[in-house]
Amino acid sequence: MVGLIGVVLVFVTVFGGYLLAGGKMAIILKTLPFEMIMICGAAIGAFTISNDGAAIKHTLKDIGKVFKGPKWRSQDYSDVLCLLFELIRLARGNPMALEGHIETPEESPIFGKYPRILEDGESVALICDTLRSASMNYDDPHQVEEVLEKRIEATLHHKMHSTHALQTVADGLPALGIVAAVLGVIKTMGSIDQPPEVLGKLIGGALVGTFLGVFLAYGLVAPFSTKVKSVIEDDAHFHQLIREVLVANLYAHAPNICIEVGRQNMPGGLRPSFSEMEVALKATKQSAA
């Protein structure tokens, strides 16, 4: 919703200010379709050249993040702590019983309590792979922490490709606008024998290209890139939280302490209070009993 409001504000303030200043939309509207074909067509073509099919699909999908915002909500952060709490308690009390949950998490009644987390393959893999490694005696906290950090960084780097692709398009749009404007000037020079009122419209139409390139770059595409980057970074906190809890578990801290470490590493606006987390953990214990 906030993203949509921002887009509306950009259009209303730019074109509203132009109209209030006495500007006429006729020249812009007449030239706009042709300028859009040249500028947007060239931008889409350059984007297609620069990226493979998977990256294109990934970028188009990520544009929706501008309007949807971060994937993980406050309840999801609380849920993943409850999930980890139950898995850690099970690993401490009955390691053999844990195996079924981490080998086939889609069939696990513990994971089944948290469908949103279960749907996220990377989060489930992060949890299961780490717990599986610990059961195989690969439990050096420092080494595991380093492995998890590199894994999370690699995942984040891959997800950031869409924001880099959008920023590259934004950087090129002003230049493409100049290309369209130059073509408009060439067209104008072909009509140099026309009266001033005709030449004025032709020159105005040519300048629409420059305006459109700069407007699309700094009014839409660059802000979209920035927003997508912000959302991806916000969602990355979810995996960082999982890492902190799992590493704390390898240090053999009590399950409650591991969860408190995770709670303290939550983003401030999403962090439940200590008492709220205690209530959630008690409910988890009761459901597991």
Rank of each mutant, 00 (worst) to 15 (best):
P223S: 07
I39M: 07
R263Q: 14
L250N: 10
S50P: 06
L83W: 05
H161A: 13
T188H: 01
D171A: 15
D140M: 00
S273P: 09
T188M: 09
A46E: 10
M277G: 04
G22C: 03
G93F: 04
L32A: 15
I186H: 04
P267S: 10
G100E: 09
E153D: 12
Q143E: 02
A46I: 15
T48G: 15
N265T: 00
Y114G: 00
N249W: 02
G64V: 03
K159R: 15
L148A: 12
G205A: 09
D235T: 12
K30W: 07
R151V: 00
L20S: 02
S225T: 09
Y77T: 05
K68E: 15
K61H: 11
K68H: 08
K201E: 15
P195I: 02
I127H: 07
R271F: 08
I39C: 05
V247M: 05
L281A: 11
K65M: 11
L29F: 07
A236W: 03
R92G: 03
P95R: 06
P272E: 02
C40V: 11
V185R: 03
E278T: 15
I28M: 03
G262R: 00
Q194R: 07
F15P: 12
L148F: 13
N256Q: 04
R263V: 02
A289H: 10
M96E: 08
G200V: 08
V2K: 02
K159V: 01
A42I: 14
P141F: 10
S135Y: 00
K201N: 14
D120L: 11
T59S: 13
V208M: 08
I37C: 12
L166I: 10
G17E: 11
I56P: 00
E106N: 14
I63R: 02
N265M: 08
L281V: 08
E149P: 06
P33I: 11
L83E: 11
T284Y: 01
H158D: 04
A91P: 02
H142N: 10
E153M: 07
M266H: 10
E35P: 01
T59H: 08
V80R: 05
M96R: 13
R89W: 05
S230E: 06
F211E: 09
I28N: 06
H237S: 10
E145N: 12
E149V: 11
V12G: 00
M136H: 09
R243D: 02
T188V: 03
F111P: 08
P141Y: 07
H237R: 01
K113Q: 08
I49G: 14
T284R: 01
L173K: 09
V10M: 04
V228E: 09
C40N: 05
L220R: 02
I28K: 06
E145D: 15
S135E: 05
G268F: 04
A288L: 13
L83S: 10
G6R: 10
L281H: 04
E86C: 10
T163F: 11
C258Q: 01
D79T: 12
I192P: 06
V12T: 08
A217E: 07
Y18S: 02
G262D: 05
K61R: 14
E260A: 02
E99Y: 06
L176V: 05
V182S: 05
S162T: 08
F111I: 04
L212E: 07
M136W: 12
G69L: 07
S50W: 07
H157A: 13
